[in-house]
Design a protein around this nucleic acid. Sequence first.
DNA 1: AAAAGCCCCTGGATGC
DNA 2: TGCATCCAGGGGCTTT
Length: 271
Amino acid sequence: MPELPEVEVTRLSFAERIAGARIVSMRLGKPLRWPLGVDPASLAGRRVLGVRRRGKYLLVDLDRGLLLLHLGMSGALSFGPARTPAGKHDHLDLETDCGLLRLHDPRRFGAVVYAEDEADPVANKLLGGLGVEPLSEGFELIAFHRGLRQRRAPIKQVLLAGDLVVGVGNIYASEALFRAGIRPTLAACRISKPRAERLRVAIREVLARALAVGGSTLRDFSNAQGESGYFQLEMLVYDRAGQPCRQCGASIRQIRQGQRSTFYCPACQKP
DNA sequence: AAAAGCCCCTGGATGC
DNA sequence: TGCATCCAGGGGCTTT
C-alpha cells in the first residue's frame, strides 16, 4: 500500500492534530515486524511533539524518545475519537488525550519501534542507509547520476532499493520510468546524464502529483482521517497489462523483477 | 560492495 | 460450496 505519497498524506492528515497530545496508554496487538523495544506502559504521560517522515517511515517525536512507524505493505493509520474496540488487525492503539492513534495492518509487515533518539542503534539501523528525499532540494542530478553509474542492476530495482533515493515503491517506480521514457530493465549504469535528469524530474512530478491527490487507493488505503486517494485514476502503466498505452496505443507489458511486477510500454520506453 | 533470493503474513481473486 | 494456487503498495537479512 504505502509509498512516499501515501505515507506523507497519512502524516499530513494527523500530525497537527496529535501535536501536543499526552499519551494515556499504549496497547499492542499481534507481533509486528520488530518488537517495540520498550515497555509500552512506560510511555504513559509522555507528550507528542510532532510527526516527521523519513522515506516511508513516520517519526513520532515525544518529549523523550520517539516512535518509528512503518506501514509495511498493508498498514494504515487512523487518528480520532475511539469509537470502536480494537479489531483483529489493529496492532497498535496509542491512546492520547486528543484521540486514538491506531495502526491497522492485516499482513503485519509494518513496525512500531521505540528509540531514545535517531542516533539510537535501533533507529540508525532502519534509517541510516536511506537515500535522499526525492522531493527535497538535495535530490539533484550530479549525485543521482553518479549513484546510477555505479549500479549494474536494472534501474527499476535500483529505485526500489531506496539507498539512492527513498520513497519510490512498486507503483511509482513503474510510473516514473514510463514518464521518463526509460525501460525498467535497463542497467542503471547505462543511463545517460540527460536521461537521468528526465528520470529525476519524472520521479519528483509523479510523487508530487500523487501526494496532491491523496495518494493511491488500490485496495484499502486511507489517510488517518479515513479519506482515500485518487492517483490510481491517473496511472499510465501500473496494473494495466494488456491494455493500450495511453500515449501510443501499444499493449502494456508486465514482467517480474525481483519477485515484483513491473509494467511498461514497449514502444514509449527505450532500452 | 553489489546483486539476487528468501522470508515475514493475511486476504482476495481465480481456477478446478 | 470447497479447496488449492497465485498475487498484493515493503524491505531486512543471508547468501553469492
